[in-house]
């Protein structure tokens, strides 16, 4: 199955491990993620003021590219656009909803982008987790050759996968999609109410202390519930929960660092894929000691 795929800027740099693991995992599942040609930055946040259209131009331009992918035969009559980054997912999906609900807005945006073909409103923005759910967690289970026996993982959703309701990939208060995935990988799911509490998002450039306070709460709640690792799907959450552990440790010397994974990294490990796809060099907290302790890496099991 070939489907258009939107990486987003950070997946090409600081979150490259998210992309490399995802592409490898997708291939294993028989999905060919075809990178959208000439994609541009989505803007990362959906513009919330009612009169502002210019900030919807970027996401809509990307949706036009999906039409082009179909026209050029890069994908076959498939108007889905798969995203990995939660923020890209949210921004693209909300912009899509807005222009579908407000045809006048769509006309204005199309007129403004007169050098592009018109966006016809027929693209469906989905998150990779939704694609996995469609394939079925049974299929995930079948592909697991390196089960996470005994590893306790806390899923973290943050905001952009769940809220607002109309774009959420799951119930905004009781999401289970990551739980199902983690369970299918053979790990123990650690539930805790902080899985949907905001990490502080873009406040990280305004006040890193505020963000590391939030991150501290989120991580220690997961740890107190027994978690040994965190699973997530957003490079900004990853930065705030992983890289900001530096600031947390400076403030709370008794804090124990906890590895933070992109869910696709966990899948790549569970599927026993080549360790080159894991990309742990980009994780701030090195997960290798934990994985070695659990006998999940370094067993020459890679295929």
């Amino acid at each position: 199955m070939k489907v258009s795929y939107y990486p987003g800027c950070t997946l090409k740099t600081k979150a490259r491990n998210f992309e490399t693991s995802a592409l490898a995992v997708a291939e294993k599942l028989g999905i060919e993620l075809i990178e959208l040609s000439r994609w541009n930055c989505c803007g990362t946040v959906f513009s919330l003021t009612d009169d502002d259209l210019i900030h919807h131009v970027a996401p809509i331009r990307n949706l036009i590219r999906v039409q082009e992918m179909n026209k050029n035969g890069l994908v076959e009559n498939d108007h889905r656009l798969v995203t990995l980054c939660s923020m890209c997912y949210n921004t693209l999906k909300r912009a899509n909803i807005r222009v579908k609900e407000k045809p006048d807005d769509l006309k204005k945006i199309n007129d403004f982008m007169y050098l592009e073909e018109d966006y016809k409103g027929n693209v469906e923005v989905i998150h990779f987790l939704e694609l996995i759910k469609d394939i079925g967690f049974e299929k995930i289970k079948e592909n697991v050759t390196n089960p996470f026996k005994g590893l306790k993982i806390a899923p973290y959703y943050g905001c952009m996968l769940l809220r607002p309701k109309e774009v959420g990939i799951d119930d905004p208060e009781e999401p289970v999609i990551q739980e199902e995935l983690i369970f299918a990988l053979g790990a123990e799911v650690i539930d805790n109410p902080y899985k949907k509490v905001c990490c502080g998002s873009y406040q990280t450039i305004r006040d890193k202390q505020v963000v590391s306070n939030l991150a501290y709460d989120i991580l220690t709640h997961a740890q107190n519930a027994g978690a040994e690792a965190i699973s997530l799907s957003c490079p900004l959450c990853a930065f705030n929960l992983d890289s900001r552990q530096k600031e947390i440790k400076e403030k709370h010397s008794d804090f124990t660092r906890i590895p933070v994974f992109y869910f696709t990294q966990l899948m790549a490990i569970g599927f026993g894929l080549n360790e080159d796809y894991y990309g742990f060099d980009l994780n701030y907290v090195n997960p290798e000691p934990l994985l070695k302790e659990k006998n999940l890496i370094g067993r020459n099991n890679a295929k």
Binding site: N40, H55, L115
Partner: peptide, 29 residues
């Protein structure tokens, strides 16, 4: 702060795809 409006490309007398190279910069390409 790029909003992908493509105004730069339209302004370029060299007919460069300016927005595309700005986007390449954002992506680290």
């Amino acid at each position: 702060r790029c909003v992908s409006c493509n105004t730069c490309t339209k302004a370029c007398p060299q007919d460069l795809e300016v927005m595309d190279y700005v986007q390449a910069a954002i992506k680290g390409d």
